[in-house]
């Protein structure tokens, strides 16, 4: 360390000197550490955690309610709801009979791993459960924050534009599955589903796509099958059985 190398170019006792410190630290390191802790906790309990993201109004909660009705007879389900204000969504989920906890982010535009960790401590999902984390409706900010989920599921409704994957590429690039929702409305809207999928694959060649309608039930069986497959892959049968016991 050279004390003469400061802006004063001379060492003067008692006078502070500037110096350089190399730190090379990820800005999101703290969030990522919480996410890793969440992931370890989910893995130990055989919990399949899904981070469900979309723009506001894509029908995430309606889709979740329909999903839970089909899934709750097969596996334990729990839900963490993220919204800026109100607990309306958690109440809609609780009406299905599964436990739900509302996080209000206040001024925040996304959930972070620390909030989810605390929510899990309070919610205490059953071992072997499928845990849906419904993020704040926002296709920008939540993209940067890992919550410790096994998969990120992006919901895009056919009442939005088919170019949304290109407009918000970060979110679609980080998702494993795209649920194209409200497909019952396809005959009534100018939405080119093929072009939408092609756009999504431009930003993420590996993204899987399932077309669903919570209203008619179309595609719901494929979505439930995807969830069961994800669960089996994450926790090969023995582990799930052990975790559920």
């Amino acid at each position: 360390m050279d004390f003469g190398a400061g802006p004063a170019r001379a060492h003067a006792p008692g006078l502070s000197q500037t110096r350089m410190v190399q730190i090379e630290q990820d800005i999101l390191a703290k969030n990522n550490a919480y996410a890793a802790a969440n992931r370890a906790c989910f893995d130990a309990a055989g919990i399949l955690a899904l981070n469900v993201v979309s723009s506001p109004g894509s029908g995430k909660t309606t889709l979740l309610v329909a999903t839970i009705e089909l899934l709750k007879t097969q596996v334990p389900v729990a839900v963490i709801e993220g919204d800026q204000q109100t607990s309306n969504d958690a109440e809609r989920i609780r009406a299905t009979g599964v436990p739900a906890l509302q996080i209000n982010t206040g001024k925040g535009c996304h959930l972070d791993a620390h909030m989810v960790g605390h929510a899990v401590e309070t919610l205490r999902p059953a071992d072997g459960a499928v845990l849906f984390v419904e993020n704040v409706g926002n296709l920008v900010c939540p993209a940067a924050f890992d919550l410790g989920e096994a998969h990120r599921v992006v919901v895009l409704s056919v009442t939005e534009g088919e170019d949304k994957p290109l407009k918000y590429p970060d979110m679609f690039a980080s998702a494993n599955l795209m649920l194209l929702s409200k497909v019952d409305l396809l005959p009534h809207v100018d939405f080119d589903a093929k072009a939408c999928v092609a756009n999504a694959r431009k930003v993420n060649p590996r993204i899987k796509v399932i077309e669903v309608s919570a209203k008619t039930g179309a595609g719901m069986a494929a979505w439930i099958a995807w969830l069961q497959a994800a669960r089996t892959l994450a926790f090969p049968s023995g582990e799930v059985a052990a975790a559920t016991r």
Binding site: G6, T18, R19, M20, V21, I23, E24, D26, I27, A144
Partner: peptide
């Protein structure tokens, strides 16, 4: 990348 690389401090 989203990294803090270096600091100038005193």
């Amino acid at each position: 990348e989203l990294r803090i690389k270096e600091l100038e401090v005193d």
